[in-house]
Computed example of a mutant assay.
Amino acid sequence: MMVNINLGNIEFQMKKWHDFSWLNSLGKIFCVFSQNDSGNISFGIDDGKERYFVKVAGLKTIESVRTPEEAVASLKKAMLIYENIKHPNLIELVKHYSLGEIYIAVFKWTEGDCLFDYWNFEKYHNNPQIVPPAKRFKQLPLKKRIKSVKVLFSFLSTVAKRNYVAVDFYDGSILYDFSTDITTICDIDFFRKKPAINDMGEDFFGTKRLKAPEEYVKGAVIDEATNVYTLGALLFSFFGNFTDADIQRRYDENAFTPCSLEKWELSKSCYDTVLKAVSVDRAARYASMDEFFIAWDKAENDSPGKYGTSGQLGQK
């Protein structure tokens, strides 16, 4: 059974009715994200001076794969991650608190489009004239995409230095502002402190489009080499071309497969660099994010045309 919720000009569905009048104290709602499987529901709020992203756990949302109690526990635990990992391109936590049985986290609003906005896929299917953010990103000049990638290198390097591993990090964790070309990381809720292991087997958090082999094996170590693989898979997504059948094969076979060199947009040296990052053999990958970046930066800047910009790990 679904319940329709109407908050002025904002409408969405839930499994159970909830009185959202408490949101009025924060400001005016201008958007809602109600289809997350995490069990959270989020709102864009404008208080007249600032805009905020408000994440709420503990309600019966329509797509949740968790109980409200599990969602609350998870969001509470995630707050320490946001407090411990500081980066210029990470969404900024303002405050978090309990309100009855629900838990609320308030972040500063960041402009941008999610690079995997699955809640809009039906809209894109019904309106083929609308270009999804992921496709718009792939249409950007190489130089702009490379600049965005350097932000990801910088962020994941910071994650490692703060003694964390990135879990469930994918294109759905990334916002890109097409007007300013700023890349923002918007969701790190499932990151874990080192040492970390896969305690869930095949169902370990993450999309099969990008998961490393060890993220399917219960008891396997999840570490910086895992994050190297994840970023390598993302780079193939950003600069490689895949058919729908190629993507479906990852789900069917529980394995990421890189594209061929012929379907790669950058140089062979860049291709070989990223190919090493997604080695099935963990020992064959780069041992750290910094080592991966050094190899990437060299390959990119040694390439004909030099489509990027050399130097330090990128930020805003």
Results as ranks from 00 to 15, higher is better:
P258I: 10
P258E: 15
C259I: 12
C259W: 08
C259K: 00
C259E: 14
C259P: 12
C259G: 11
S260T: 15
S260E: 15
S260L: 10
S260H: 09
S260N: 14
S260R: 02
S260P: 10
L261P: 06
L261E: 10
L261W: 06
L261A: 04
L261R: 03
L261G: 02
E262I: 10
E262M: 06
E262S: 12
E262Q: 07
K263S: 14
K263L: 11
K263V: 09
E265R: 00
E265M: 02
E265A: 07
L266G: 05
S267E: 03
S267V: 01
S267F: 00
K268H: 05
K268D: 13
K268S: 11
K268P: 07
K268M: 09
K268L: 09
S269M: 04
S269E: 15
S269V: 08
C270I: 06
Y271D: 13
Y271E: 11
Y271R: 01
Y271F: 13
Y271A: 00
Y271P: 05
Y271S: 04
D272A: 02
D272K: 02
T273C: 04
T273F: 01
V274L: 05
L275A: 10
L275Y: 13
K276M: 10
K276T: 15
A277K: 01
A277M: 07
A277R: 00
A277P: 08
V278Q: 05
V278K: 00
V278W: 04
V278S: 04
S279K: 00
S279R: 02
S279W: 08
S279A: 12
S279N: 13
S279F: 09
S279Q: 05
S279L: 06
S279H: 04
V280E: 15
V280G: 08
V280T: 14
V280C: 08
V280I: 14
V280L: 13
V280K: 01
D281L: 03
D281W: 06
D281S: 05
D281V: 12
D281K: 03
R282Q: 14
R282N: 07
R282L: 10
R282H: 09
R282F: 11
A283K: 00
A284F: 08
A284M: 10
A284T: 12
R285E: 15
R285F: 13
R285S: 13
Y286D: 15
Y286M: 11
Y286Q: 11
Y286P: 12
Y286E: 15
A287N: 06
A287S: 06
A287F: 05
S288D: 14
S288G: 09
S288V: 09
S288H: 06
S288E: 13
M289D: 14
M289W: 13
M289S: 11
M289V: 15
D290Q: 05
D290M: 06
D290H: 02
D290V: 06
D290S: 06
D290T: 09
D290Y: 05
E291A: 10
E291W: 04
E291T: 08
F292P: 07
F292H: 06
F292M: 11
I294G: 06
I294Y: 12
I294A: 12
A295R: 03
A295P: 09
A295H: 09
A295L: 10
W296D: 09
D297A: 03
K298S: 15
K298G: 09
A299G: 07
A299K: 00
E300D: 13
E300P: 05
E300C: 11
N301R: 01
N301T: 11
N301W: 08
D302Y: 03
D302F: 01
S303L: 03
S303R: 02
S303N: 05
S303K: 00
